[in-house]
Nucleic acid binder design. Structure first.
Lengths: 147, 147
DNA sequence: TAAAATATGGACTTTTTAAGTCCACATTAA
DNA sequence: TTAATGTGGACTTAAAAAGTCCATATTTTA
């Protein structure tokens, strides 16, 4: 029961990308964030595929956000980086639960699972950004700390 | 990011034990719950060590709860079965976080972690028991929790 | 147009953890 | 005494996470 490095790396990368004006390349992300480049490449692919970022190919290429930070929930990133696997095997792997619908534990597991996924749903990339970067730029000047 | 089988097995076993009047043996727990006996034995040891159950050794031995179900939180069981490992590496493994206290993500991870642990803290073994079995047990035999 | 810098796709390897097994031993009711 | 139980620890296996590699496609720019 642990958050994967993939998720951590993905979040960290997205923060960098969100803060960048230009497409941010793999090499730079990897160096700044101290994450193995080849592995990160794989993670970025899933983010592209998942519609969280767009990639710009070729020289001067890199990645840009495809949605605004407040619309990227931690849950979305989690779903992409950790595949479709569910939190609680017994309520997701039908063939496993020998007790089926009569199991008194199932309903509780479902609640626990919901509480956890909710925790990931209500945090967005925006919450992960440093305050000063949130408003982007206005008149060429960084906006001040507002919320 | 998935609940381990160990936790599932532990919870399932504890439900059986809670429903039994007498010490409930490994063999019976393992058979009723369809869990590998040798593996379960290992799990039970950690539960004994963790003060959740007491063991009765020798013939007619088995396990009994050491606390009432409402005082056994899912979180306690989790802590025992999954060791001390923390949910989010970056906030628990000091040496890993190159960004240290300046990291804007850390505070959010801490919130997420708290939300998750809270979810496990507020559920107790009592919530996992079938309603009808909470108070009473019939004719000296362990009731199966499946009706 | 050639070269350099980038992303892509997929196969592959390594490392780590979870899951499971085994066996010799200790304890106790019958 | 013996059969049924739990204990302790070493061990093995299986699965998943983490990481690597290479050949290829795309685009900028010298």
């Amino acid at each position: 029961m642990q958050v994967s490095k993939s998720l951590e790396y993905a979040v960290r990368s997205l923060v960098f990308i969100a803060e960048s004006e230009k497409p941010l390349g793999l090499s730079e992300i990897s160096q700044t964030g101290r994450m193995p480049k080849a592995y990160l490449a794989k993670i970025m692919r899933t983010l592209v595929e998942g519609g969280v970022v767009s990639s710009v190919r070729g020289r001067k290429g890199g990645y840009v956000l495809k949605k605004v930070p407040k619309d990227i929930a931690l849950y979305d990133i989690l779903s992409l980086t950790e595949g479709k696997e569910k939190l609680i095997p017994c309520i997701n792997d039908g063939k496993f639960c020998y007790a089926s619908s009569f199991c008194s534990q199932k309903v509780v597991w479902i609640k626990v699972e919901k509480a956890i996924t909710d925790a990931f749903k209500k945090v967005t990339l925006k919450d992960m950004l440093p305050r000063r970067a949130i408003g982007k730029v206005k008149n060429g000047r960084a906006q001040n700390y507002i919320s």
